[in-house]
Design a binder for these strands. Sequence first.
DNA 1: CTGTTAGCGCTTTCAC
DNA 2: GTGAAAGCGCTAACAG
Lengths: 350, 350
Amino acid sequence: MSINSPHPTLSQVARKAGVGTTTVSRVINGGDRVSPKTLAHVRRVIETLGYIPNPAARSLKGHRTKTIGLVVPSITDPFFASCAEAAQAVARANDSLLIVTVTANEPCNELEILNVLIRHRVDGLLIVPADSNSHALLDLLQRAAMPVVAIDRPIGNPSIASVVADNLLGAMTATQHLIGHGCKRIVALTGEETLYTIQERMNGYLKAIKAAHLTPIFDTSVKDYACAERAIKNLLDGPHPPDAIFALKNSTTIFAFEALQKLGVAVPQSIALLGFDDFDLASTVRPSISVIQQPVEEIGRRAAEILFEQLSGGSSASSPASAKQPQQIKMTTCLIQRSSCGCTPANESK
Amino acid sequence: MSINSPHPTLSQVARKAGVGTTTVSRVINGGDRVSPKTLAHVRRVIETLGYIPNPAARSLKGHRTKTIGLVVPSITDPFFASCAEAAQAVARANDSLLIVTVTANEPCNELEILNVLIRHRVDGLLIVPADSNSHALLDLLQRAAMPVVAIDRPIGNPSIASVVADNLLGAMTATQHLIGHGCKRIVALTGEETLYTIQERMNGYLKAIKAAHLTPIFDTSVKDYACAERAIKNLLDGPHPPDAIFALKNSTTIFAFEALQKLGVAVPQSIALLGFDDFDLASTVRPSISVIQQPVEEIGRRAAEILFEQLSGGSSASSPASAKQPQQIKMTTCLIQRSSCGCTPANESK
DNA sequence: CTGTTAGCGCTTTCAC
DNA sequence: GTGAAAGCGCTAACAG
């Protein structure tokens, strides 16, 4: 109805209600220290006018913008999508909005986006850093002086909180499981070696292999399906063909599976397969694929929760146990035994 | 270094540079009407101080907030994740940020979230409406008086632009393809019948079935894997077992596939399978699954582009062909022939 | 309990 | 070219 102004203002409400602006302000902020009568009256006027407080004016007064930024490599990756969904839920529970941005794992994109986010005065940041050890990143974050929580990969500075999966232990467990199946020549198909997660998994694999006095075999060449097929073919035709494949990331697992299938190799009879990171159809394909599963949603949720704790707390003593040192949380992973590693799961159809 | 203020202000810059605030304002807004000399000088001071304009103050002056809201049922659904990723790219290209929210397809969540977004004064909205015909939704949107573009499902009012897949034509094509394979008893496994997309697909199926003088068979019971197994078992054991299944949505396709596999039914020999909406491993499972593919990313991208056109244009004549009527775009789908429908694709491994 | 009064950081006439 | 000054809508002292 109000043709003139798209949005009525607080003072308009005040005038129409015949009260001061302070009173209206108090009403929209919980209504404390206002007589029940005026409160009801002002509320009615607000309703009538369709008044909506302007958040810009509010945050201008030094308050929060009620937005947090999420910086991930990609949203189409199920892992990050789950994190994002969990984070948005937590944000909403804290009366905040989630701004989602993607970096494609490019440090320069990351820096640029972070700048935009900081300029936008988000209250805090959730980041999956493209490069865990980037000096520029750390600098920027330090200067921004706002709460930050790293997800999936720590940021090379203990002053920044992080929530990651226990990649090392997960990879050790996986490797040991394969060894338990009697595998002697286990090849690790890596993925981007520059990534913290991959490095940790490589270390875990290495640790288990060495403990069992076996020979570590790495193949870092698998970037796409073609690579996978070539790599596996070479391995199989070589003098000492492997008896197991440990794929260090999702897409690698799938490429390997496809290649094995194409080459007509019996899994797990001729060669066992175990992947790091679960995926939707891992239980549906035949043979079903055993994997190390990460508590994806929980990683996103915890990270967001920690961020909001930092936002509200901010001060010193709160939880008795935790010191001031920002938390570095490692979530435990879980081995899902399906068929591809040589196990025989009870209910094959789930 | 500035211990006192977390963020230097424009007037601090002005003072330090020995100029007026107006000049600084001009500099940060493109630097027009400022002498090259002062421009350079002010820029240097800005750099030194690490000055960042406060967007809250800016939008308070009636400007845009440079944020748009995306409202989807879920981000973990690959379809919406792709839309989101495309939309965020377009937003960034337009110097804006994307706020992502999820509704779980619940109209009440939707309304609530929309209110938060509107209150936040986002510049525009991208919505996958939980209910295409919700009066409350329409009302709210009308009142918000901001650019809105519907994605995947139109909002029951031609005054709101939308970008959706041509579900009807896609389903017709699918059904006709199955008929072309000689199938006579094609059962449609639906999904949520209240959804616009499902309804359209049902109509497309119906149209093709009728044109071929066949009998339509619907099964609306498939909500999860157990339902699927039961439904398919019943169908197969019935007096007139179907010779093809047309699954109207992704998860249904997967459930059906799993059930068929579990029941030991030969696909496509005993029964053909065709799904609506492509998914990652559709080409990897055996048999590979034929599907109707939607131009997902493009749907998200176009929708965002249209939103920004509305935001910038706003006025009347721009493109010669398009009238003032908001655009209702239907993207064409594509039949991906793989094995499950009876086709024999050339390259089975991709 | 309630109103008056300064600003928050920025843009924008309107003079110079 | 440049600056002074008046707000944008709201909150927060500080009086009553």
